[in-house]
Simulated scan of single mutants.
Amino acid sequence: MAQKAHPNILRPNCDLYKGSTYWNEPRFYYIISTINKLIESCCLGTTHYLNKITINRHFGFIIIEIDLIHLHFRSKGRFISRRFKENKKKVKKQSWTVVASRLHTAIKLIQKLSGSKKITLKINRLKSYTRSVPKPVRRQLMYFNKGFNRTRYDYARYGMQLIYLLMLKKANALTLSRFLTQNICSRQRRKRHYQFLAFIKQVFKALEPYRKITGLKIQIKGRFTHKAKGRSRSWKHQIGSIPLSQLDKNIQAQYVQTQTAYGSVGIKVWICS
């Protein structure tokens, strides 16, 4: 039986390769894929998510434009003075300072890899707070935001922010797949997988009146539960419709794989906008 084709292959948005004087086609795609991996690795372990990346070149110059989504744990109303920030000895691992220093190092590596004269990096950062989520949704998910549940549901605050942006077409499948991968591979015994998956369902149900996308589908399959003999389990959730057979529809697809304490897990995300 034939292998299924990737939905994005059947729906080409733009041709990346348009010819170059010093890059042939295989070298071009190798450099582009390496740049994508470097920029994505700069956001790992932080609250910054890579939403979109655009790479343009002109003669010996490379222009990289990235869209980042910055999710906040605390509300926007909390005010901290500049002097308090400057006198702090420790820098948070999830702060923008860490991401900026990583990007600065990544630019030097990209310049050596591509052999270009100059690299320009443009960053568009979209900040999101818990108060940006509608108040009726926050009331429905109030249990996950309580102080005594902060350790168990440490993903609740920035999870609802990310999914709300996704429903408003301000985030894509790459961002959601990274959020799912980050939380599924880090679950411990006190923070079980079925609690995280139940939270995902409740957030989509609460944000259904604000949906602007046509449909969304999530499929998680693998060994991510403490079942006997490590049997694999399949979990699916869908809202709206995903017309994969209609080539004129704009469908984003993202396939990723992660590891848990029980084995490997495959995550598939489809978004029809």
Rank of each mutant, 00 (worst) to 15 (best):
T130R: 09
K92A: 11
I200T: 02
F144T: 01
K146V: 01
L174T: 08
Q111H: 13
F204W: 03
Q238D: 08
P243F: 03
Y164C: 04
K201C: 02
A2N: 05
H193T: 15
I35E: 02
A156E: 01
M1C: 09
L68K: 02
Q252R: 08
K135T: 10
T260N: 07
H58N: 14
L141N: 03
L216P: 04
T47D: 03
Q238P: 02
T151C: 13
R150N: 13
L50H: 03
D248V: 04
L126P: 02
S264R: 13
L103E: 06
F73M: 01
R150S: 12
F84Q: 14
N172S: 02
Q202E: 13
A5C: 13
K249V: 01
P7V: 12
R187H: 04
R11C: 04
T258C: 15
K217C: 10
K90V: 10
D15R: 07
Q111I: 12
I63A: 06
Y17L: 11
G60Y: 01
D154I: 08
I69L: 13
L126G: 05
S75I: 02
F73H: 01
C42I: 03
K205L: 08
S95P: 12
L50A: 06
N149I: 05
Q161M: 04
I200P: 01
S132Q: 14
Q252C: 04
K4V: 03
N149Y: 13
I39K: 00
G263N: 06
S232E: 09
M142H: 09
N56L: 12
S101F: 06
E86M: 11
K117C: 01
T120A: 03
G230P: 07
F73G: 05
A228E: 10
L68M: 15
L50P: 04
S234C: 10
S132K: 06
R152Q: 12
G159E: 03
G222C: 01
S101E: 06
V269W: 08
G45I: 02
Q252Y: 06
T105H: 11
